[in-house]
Nucleic acid binder design. Structure first.
Lengths: 339, 339
DNA sequence: TCTATTGATTAGAGCGCTCTAATCTTGTAG
DNA sequence: CTACAAGATTAGAGCGCTCTAATCAATAGA
């Protein structure tokens, strides 16, 4: 049996209460006793039992985290940021996955709440808003990559409109006039990216071209083939704002297959700055979301609530940034830069 | 305040003990009472408090999981497999990251153990063996992508030697004779892959060429440049077994940069079958590890111990498989297939 | 010498649950 | 009726800790 506080107390010749004080770094313990207790604890290999502590103190150091899909590098990055911040502050993460199904997410959320966590962080959840509000009645809730109007809920989102605008500004700045967006369809954040694209294009006095696509490489290929079938070579968009990096890679494949060069004939911008984009082989110009930072902010928002420092909801809208790599170049009327 | 068992008992007009029995699906409760309790619980929105339950029953449904690096898709996949199995069996995951530093991993592990978890799963940990053995004295431990001889420790590993052999057999079968391995250096599993490569080459009566590299794309580029500098065009290896997929992508870049075509001039096999490899743009032939399966097996090994069904350590060595895509082709003495 | 006062220590109740053992109901057989 | 077994229910201790209030020791002031 693992030693308990009682064992440490007996060995150190003090009361359990004193051991408790030492374990919580209370200042009102004499140095002599503290040392004795610490030594006894060390000798027995004692470690406080977080669950018992949580129960007795009616506080929790557990943060529930529900992830839409861990295989998605985006979420993995957010969780890493979350974990780093939580560890530094002495919190522990209980982690779940919802399998992208509302029903399963509901169970996962319930399971997290049964820990009576200090708070809960949901990464791009697909559960109905009512479920989120119900959770918010039990403990603070922070949403990442999903919005909410509930007052007990904080949100952390990337400003997809600004991100698309960044991409458009970049391409327009390079002289491109015919620019198309490969829309992410129903994917999280896709609507904002599309809106941002359209708004930015109009701001530049350009006609927005939106092609329905998805956040996968095969969809990117397909969409570009459609584009190629629709436009003559001379009218083909010379700039492409993809829904995400995967989509961009697919688009590049289809372009190259058709004998078009990137970036000489067509410039292309991705979205997300995944590890994929950074690969030298691709060197994709892309829009970066501060993912680790998003995790940190989510944690901080939660902790502010837990500590009662704030009751008003906070809505973080993070500003993305453009990472210029090798898939974008100045527009050339001759359809290619000089070689 | 959230309702407790006492509240439910009062509302249903029964004792707390009876509510406890209902919550645990005990068969020795009359249907009438069961229904009454369930209704009262429903009305109050009652959910048992896992921590209190764990404390009282001296059992735990918590599994501690320490991940070397969540950003690495490999681990994210394993965790997904783990999570699916754990959820199905009613366990919860407490998750940590070690920041790839032994000291930080030590803290992370301690933090997990302070939950008195049913068991602990470590994904490619870098802590010293002694720390693992110490943990194993407190609860069952399963290691993924790391070996151990301790008797309280189960392990789940992919058979890196077999994986490399698969790659070599494939290339040799395509007629390649000069085959080089881009070694992963100190990375987890790199040693096995190298050994497997060497053994397989000898089995085919071929001379193994090993180039020191790392599991990154830039290292892959660098290594191929070295290869190009070392060998004349005619003596250049025509088959490459990369340390992992990233490494393979870097290698491809360097080859193309040098005017060599993949797979016409050089065939290349990756390792891990990451989402990267599946990208149609790359279509990398690669060795697949059953990652989700590894997570599931780790969970099962743990549960067997938790249930006391087994005390002997189990050492899973999973058989990888080859996924043939477009970066490998039959060797042609003319240095290229007919076009 | 006798309070106050301050700081250090501890007794003991209680967190929300489980679990053993005891108690209460029935139904049935004698 | 009574006795008793079997099933249903409950009392109450206890899991490992925290926290309030009480106790104790030591020092200072009068």
């Amino acid at each position: 049996m693992r030693p308990t506080m009682e064992d440490v107390a007996a060995r150190a010749g003090v009361s359990r209460a004193l051991v408790s004080l030492v374990m919580r770094n209370s200042p009102k313990v004499s140095e002599a006793r503290r040392a004795a207790v610490l030594r006894a604890a060390e000798e027995l290999g004692y470690q406080p039992h977080v669950m018992a502590r949580s129960l007795a103190s009616r506080t929790s150091t557990v943060l529930g985290v529900m992830v839409n899909d861990l295989r998605n590098a985006f979420f993995a990055d957010v969780v890493e940021g979350l974990d780093a911040a939580a560890q530094a502050a002495g919190f522990d993460l209980v982690l779940n996955t919802g399998g992208r199904s509302p029903a399963r997410e509901g169970n996962a959320l319930r399971s997290l709440l049964s820990f009576r966590p200090a708070g809960v962080i949901l990464l791009s959840p697909v559960v109905p808003a009512s479920a989120i509000e119900a959770a918010a009645r039990q403990c603070p809730v922070v949403l990442v990559s999903r919005t909410s109007r509930a007052s007990g809920v904080d949100t952390v989102n990337d400003d997809g409109e600004a991100g698309s605008a960044l991409a458009v500004d970049h391409l327009a700045g390079l002289g491109h006039r015919r620019i198309a967006h490969l829309d992410g369809g129903g994917a999280a954040g896709a609507a904002q990216r599309r809106r941002g694209f359209q708004a930015a294009m109009r701001r530049h006095g350009l006609e927005p071209i939106v092609v329905r696509s998805e956040h996968t490489d095969t969809a990117g290929e397909k969409s570009v083939r459609e584009l190629l079938a629709t436009y003559s070579r001379l009218e083909l968009p010379t700039g492409l704002v993809a829904g995400n990096d995967f989509n961009a890679v697919g688009a590049i494949s289809a372009l190259e297959e058709a004998g078009l060069r990137v970036p000489e004939d067509v410039s292309i911008v991705g979205y997300d700055n995944t590890s994929l984009a950074a690969l030298r082989h691709l060197s994709l110009t892309t829009v970066d979301q501060p993912r680790t930072e998003m995790g940190r902010l989510a944690f901080e928002a939660l902790v502010e609530r837990v500590r009662g420092e704030r009751t008003e909801p906070v809505r973080h809208l993070l500003h993305p940034s453009l990472v210029v790599r090798a898939t974008t170049a100045r527009f050339s009327a001759t359809g290619g830069v000089a070689r």
